[in-house]
Simulated scan of single mutants.
Amino acid sequence: MIQNKGNLSSVEADGENNTEGHWLYSDEVKRHFFSPLNFVTDVDEVKDFDGLGLVGSPACGDMMKVWIKVDDKEDKIKQMKWQTFGCASAIGSTSALSEMVTENNGMDLEKAMQIKPQDIIARLGGLPNKKIHCSVLGDKALRSAINDYFKRSGQVERIREEGARMIDSEAKVTDKDIEEAVLEGATTLEAVQKKTKAGLGRPELIPEIEELIKFYREKYFG
């Protein structure tokens, strides 16, 4: 799922690409990119984790899953694992995030919910300007995983919902609509399309819709 492509050059003041067209990255980004921390190679290693979050889209190239293990007595994250389809910035920022929330005996859940992309970028020593959007995936996936933990542990009053993401603008279907369809028993593409019409007029969206169906099916039904 992770592929190291090409060389990563040192970051410069303007945060843009060099004359050879390669993105310029800090040493900290390169450290996390070439030796990512807490990356999941086998999903069996996270089967007993307490929360799972998913953000992004395989269709546009960046998708991320985050798993967390929580100490319920201390209300802290003890472990964070992740997988991503994405570029060096997505990989580096998620690896750095996993280090941030687990160091010093783990981060409080409330503090972790408040992490912003700027915090991750600062940790990395900067990102190229056109790659900053990649750092947004990690904090969103983490909040999704924490919300999932709150739901599983019966702490629904602590859930802070992210805004729904539009999947099919023509059919006006969001990821939340697909999640609801799966929860109502629509666990195949055909069944979800019957309920939502997602992708009927835009076949290029089918891979993303199928990935969401798979994710929600595994999340709720194992």
Rank of each mutant, 00 (worst) to 15 (best):
H22L: 14
A13T: 11
D14L: 09
D62Q: 12
D44K: 15
H22V: 10
V40R: 13
V29E: 06
M64A: 07
S57R: 08
W23H: 03
C60W: 02
D62N: 15
V43I: 13
V40H: 08
E20P: 00
F34R: 05
P58H: 06
E45S: 15
F34G: 00
D44Q: 10
V29H: 02
K47H: 08
T19Y: 04
N18K: 09
D42G: 08
L24T: 14
V40W: 01
V43R: 14
F33G: 00
E45L: 10
T41L: 12
S26Q: 07
M63C: 12
S57E: 08
H32I: 06
D44S: 15
G15D: 03
L24K: 11
L37C: 05
G21R: 03
M63W: 02
G51N: 04
D42Q: 08
F49D: 09
D50H: 15
T19W: 04
L52K: 03
D42E: 09
G15C: 08
V46P: 04
V43N: 11
V46H: 03
N18H: 04
L24H: 01
C60T: 15
M64N: 09
V11A: 13
D44R: 15
S35M: 11
N17V: 02
V46W: 03
L24A: 07
N18I: 06
G15V: 01
N38Y: 06
F49L: 02
C60D: 14
H22D: 12
T19K: 12
L37G: 01
E20K: 13
L54V: 11
D44F: 03
D62A: 12
H22I: 02
F49Q: 04
E28Y: 02
K30L: 11
V29T: 13
D14S: 11
K47E: 09
L54H: 13
V29F: 08
V29M: 13
D48T: 13
H22G: 01
E28S: 11
M64T: 15
V55Y: 12
F33R: 15
L54S: 10
F39Q: 12
V46M: 07
V40P: 06
G53Y: 02
W23A: 03
N38A: 14
S57F: 11
D48I: 05
L54Y: 14
G21E: 07
R31E: 11
P36A: 13
P36R: 05
E28A: 15
F49S: 04
A13W: 08
D44P: 00
G51H: 07
D42C: 09
N17L: 13
D50G: 04
G56E: 03
D44E: 14
F39C: 09
V43W: 08
V55K: 04
P58L: 09
K47T: 10
V29Y: 01
M63Y: 04
V40M: 10
M64I: 13
M64W: 00
N18C: 07
E28V: 15
L54P: 01
T41P: 00
W23M: 06
H22E: 06
K47A: 13
P36T: 04
V29S: 11
D48P: 00
G51R: 04
L54N: 11
D44V: 02
N18V: 03
L52M: 07
D14G: 05
M64E: 14
D48R: 05
A59L: 14
A59V: 14
V55G: 02
L37I: 12
S26V: 07
F39L: 15
R31V: 00
E16T: 10
G21W: 05
K47C: 05
D62L: 07
N18P: 01
G56S: 07
